[in-house]
Nucleic acid binder design. Structure first.
Lengths: 348, 348
DNA sequence: TTTAGCACTCTGATCCCCGGAGTGCTAAAC
DNA sequence: GTTTAGCACTCCGGGGATCAGAGTGCTAAA
């Protein structure tokens, strides 16, 4: 038995319908929507589709529901690639007029925007290079017991913080220290930074070393944190609106997974901007009954960000995919235009 | 009719019991727990307590449930102020070994810790002074089209960012600019900053002004953002574990409120470190059926932070209050010890 | 190959019933 | 006067039983 064109059409109708109603769809409804054939004919076809594995039957006398395999076919071939309406595009871009500053705040802002736009939980991540390095250091003395460390990292990211010093430092020592930092502790991995710190230990006076190590360990921490993939999830509560998550336990389980999971959320292949994972295609057990649509965007030259949307297998793939890639493109544009965007206009 | 000591004891037992079971508690159970009197006696007392408004009866033949008034009395007089066990204190302190850096990241970390410790949703906020001011500026040239702005604000907070400049700037112009910034734009409100910007407009060359206004508007934005109370909520999903929020709609409603509400969450009085709001004592409608325990802690000299816990009226007030104040004290200590803590130890 | 017809199945809503928990009241006991 | 035992009563919640509706599969005819 093979998958005729008509069978595909029927499958499409089933998925389209089920996506919106969450109720098993029956032969009569399909016949009505297709026209030209009677429900009996449809029933025959449906039986075939079940046998082929594209549909499932919750119980003998219920309508049909798409199987993961059915969704997969739908996503690959049947789904009408949606274009974003002008209105939507505009809305997306408007919602991306974020006051960005720190990257992670930006992420959660964008995540909220996406989530409210697709009505599913969303996760965002910025995947830095495995190893960020410092590009440049500055020390700004505040008083004799404290100074501001400013560190510029890859991708023009800047971090700074006030550091209380454990001992008094003469003003002129700062410049020596800065030189040392810039000459020996830039453009190397954090691991190596620690090594070099060891090496210089006996080459400089002890109190200078103390100070140096304070700065370096701040730097190491910041770099590691920046390189580490931080995942922010937003809009988990949207789950509760879905009939498949009305059960509090189920919802709680998935929410916990989303809140806790730091690493094991799906990521698109390096060469493609978007990936759709349907039900059991997910590796994590917690996602076995859900689908994930995840898109990537570019941050600067060598960083990549992720936006993922988690929903029931009965997710509106076409819409979600369209909107998500709209966002991803928007974000790429945002980051591409300028590393971290200054104000285009001052207040008038 | 008056509130005898025995009535109070009975009320206490009812609340204690109901807090843990979420089931109306009957006379027999109370009698068993009190000893000495029979259930019939208790029934008489219960009837009185209902009449006095401390208890409620879901329906005629059910046990009793505390009313808000009952909880209030319980909280004010009856509840055994819990001491944290050594074990708990230690756990709290351990969980406050946060890698803090940016304030808001710290908040969400601490929020998560609290939430996992009390098993209720938690909100955290840092309430800055109404008006933060800049204390000092630095500009670090990167190349001729970009520089790093570093701004030190009240409370020793530091912000920095790379700024792309709209026009080329000679190196020596930077120092002029910094002087201008430090002499004219520090220690004043953002409103005044904007005014001064206007004023200097015709006193300096146009391109210098362009640059200046770029920096100032960055500063204004950062200051306003820092002064603005940012509320972070965590652990909302814990609601789903509670019988009173098994209903998805209810849970969703409250979660949405917690996620969206930026300003209208309860705050303790200025002079007291902790406040308990029971059910209808809350102003917001969305919290009418819930209770809130909120504690404050000090950040630096003139900032105050909040930790609030939201739960059902049937909240375990004693435990929550104890743990919450444990956290609040921990945070106060953390911030008090040093503005923003450097590493105490370098890596050994 | 499609369709009409029909008997059959299964679900989900509704109703009913009933046991159990708990009450309020009364009358006796302390 | 307070406490207690006893008892009738109320109400909830769970467990069938019932039933209509939706949908199916199959057969036989078009």
């Amino acid at each position: 038995m093979e998958l005729t064109e008509r069978k595909k059409q029927i499958l499409k109708v089933v998925v389209d319908d089920y996506i919106h109603t969450a109720e098993p769809v029956g032969s009569k409804a399909i016949a009505a929507r297709m026209g030209g054939v009677s429900s009996a004919t449809i029933r025959n076809e449906l039986a075939d589709l079940v046998e082929l594995g594209y549909l499932e039957q919750p119980h003998t006398s219920a309508g049909r529901v798409p199987s993961p395999k059915g969704y997969r076919l739908y996503v690959n071939e049947l789904m009408e690639r949606q274009k974003l309406s002008l209105d939507e595009t505009e809305k997306i871009n408007r919602s991306l007029q974020l006051k960005m500053e720190e990257l992670d705040r930006l992420l959660s802002q964008a995540g909220r925007a996406v989530s409210s736009f697709v009505n599913y939980p969303t996760y965002m991540a910025a995947a830095g290079k495995k190893s960020m390095t410092a590009q440049r250091f500055e020390l700004l003395p505040v008083d004799e017991r404290s100074c501001i460390v400013v560190m510029m990292m890859d991708g023009n990211r800047v971090k700074s913080q006030l550091l209380r010093l454990q001992l008094k430092v003469e003003m002129d020592q700062f410049s020596i220290l800065v030189n040392l930092l810039n000459s020996h502790f830039t453009k190397i991995s954090t691991k190596e930074m620690n090594l070099r710190l060891m090496n210089v230990a006996d080459q400089i006076p002890p109190q200078a070393f103390l100070l140096l190590s304070q700065v370096v360990s701040y730097a190491v921490e910041s770099l590691e944190e920046a390189g580490h993939r931080e995942i922010v999830t937003t809009g988990a509560r949207e789950l509760l609106k879905l009939p498949e998550f009305r059960d509090a336990d189920k919802a709680h389980e998935l929410m916990s997974f989303l809140a806790d999971s730091k690493e094991n959320l799906p990521v698109p292949e390096d060469d493609s901007p978007m990936k759709i994972l349907i039900g059991p295609e997910n590796v994590s057990d917690a996602l076995k009954d859900t689908s994930v649509v995840v898109a990537s965007y570019d941050i600067g030259d060598d960083m990549r960000g992720l936006i993922g949307v988690v929903g029931p297998t009965r997710m509106d793939y076409a819409t979600v995919a369209a909107r998500l890639s709209g966002f991803a493109e928007g974000l790429t544009r945002l980051f591409g235009k300028q590393e971290l965007p200054p104000k285009e206009d001052t207040k008038e």
